[in-house]
Design a binder for these strands. Structure first.
Lengths: 233, 233
DNA sequence: CTAAATTTGTGCTTTATAACACTGTTGTCA
DNA sequence: TGACAACAGTGTTATAAAGCACAAATTTAG
């Protein structure tokens, strides 16, 4: 199975979305300098407060990015899927990591030394601009999320989380089930509420025929209603 | 007075912190292409949902950046002081503005056409990198703020707001009064609470000898305690 | 394959904070 | 100068959501 996993792994050039803006030299350089790392489910990839050493690209699996808050409550900032980058913000800002990243399921990560990454950023303008764009988009999303999480009520926050998950991970073949199975606790940490309230609110949504549940599998039944709840707060 | 104002105004090259990474050609280009705009107190500079047209640099005054939330509640994202840039995130992300900016006091703004700004970003790598750095720092701050606003209690949120204001605007000559006078409502919108609760909590801080108040003038008396409250939540 | 640990689900209680309804104060401008 | 608006302050009530306790179901591990 491990073998199969490896053979299925896409090379860096297919997973790195900014590959095409690199010069042939830079590409060759990258091919020789990245390393591959495997993480088991729940294994930590990097931790809040640590010095960043690598820019990372998720090759396979799913990871969650979160911050430890007050009194063991944690806030999931975002969930990543293959092809997405992480761990580079702290490198650029010259800070320590301000989030922790753990493998949500068994995952493969390509790592690029911070110095290598910085060197390309500083020499290839198109590459730099791509990350500027990405960061600009993320910053907008982060500010929007702040208001969503602080001002909306429980139902609105959970509705929003479900819509974000669907948008990010898509649906399974049945065209309804969201392609990621989260524990109630993670769902709560994503929506800024307690586990009990996540459970209760999910049940309410089922009663209101807005979603259907089968364990951790969640289907969106009445999308329109869900959007409405998410907008109203 | 208006005349005095103008004569006091620093030219673009002194206020634009990234000026030194520009080529002589770019500098000349900028000198000829920026425009100066004056805004009265409470006047809107740009509005959420609008198409961005200019990158802006605050030359004098103070402005607040905020998002309209659920039911006329607004969340102040940040307060700017002269020398800081704004309005460029939406240009880079190719989105409409997701925040509204209004002059908090009479302010002067240098504006640079979006196309001009983008052109320099795309041709001058050092310039691009400077904005990448700035955005990386802001993104970290935004995520930290999300957790602060969602998980801390009222006292912690207000304490944090006061510390941020002091850090950003500094102190007056007396070495204690924070150099910005906000209404209780703005203080509330900064700390995600209602105006009544901002008033009440400020009074509590005064009773606890943590701060001193004189109208809108706020002095931090017991900084250590304030930091402690802000950390504990 | 059983025991332990984790996750899910539910009801009850408590509490933080919003909402509301006032009163007093200050500032503005016609 | 007097009227009106905006702001500051306070008490009371209402309520959303946290906290807690516990049972049932499911997963993990020895």
């Amino acid at each position: 199975m491990a073998k199969k996993h490896v053979s299925e792994l896409k090379p860096l050039e297919e997973i790195l979305t900014v590959w095409d803006v690199l010069t042939p030299d830079e590409r060759q350089f990258l091919r020789n300098s990245y390393t591959v790392h495997y993480f088991k489910k729940n294994e930590m990839i990097h931790c809040e407060g640590e010095q960043p050493t690598h820019m990372m690209i998720l090759a396979s699996g799913k990871v969650k990015v979160f911050k430890e808050g007050v009194g063991s409550r944690s806030q999931i900032i975002r969930m990543l899927k293959p092809g997405e980058h992480f761990g580079y913000r702290a490198i650029i800002a010259n800070e320590t990591y301000n989030t922790t990243v753990t493998a949500f399921e068994a995952s493969t990560v390509y790592m690029l030394k911070a110095a290598t990454f910085l060197s390309i950023l500083r020499h290839n303008n198109a590459f730099c601009y791509r990350f500027l764009e990405e960061m600009a988009t993320d910053l907008g999303a982060s500010d929007a999320r702040t208001v969503n999480l602080t001002q909306k009520h429980i139902r609105g926050r959970l509705a929003e989380a479900l819509l974000i998950l669907r948008k990010n991970y898509g649906l399974e073949e049945d065209g309804a089930t969201i392609s990621i199975y989260l524990s109630r606790e993670d769902l709560a940490n994503l929506s800024n509420m307690t586990t009990s309230n996540a459970i209760r609110t999910l049940s309410n949504f089922v009663n209101d025929h807005i979603i259907a549940m089968d364990g951790r599998k969640l289907k969106i039944i009445d999308e329109e209603q869900l959007i409405k709840i998410s907008k109203m707060g």
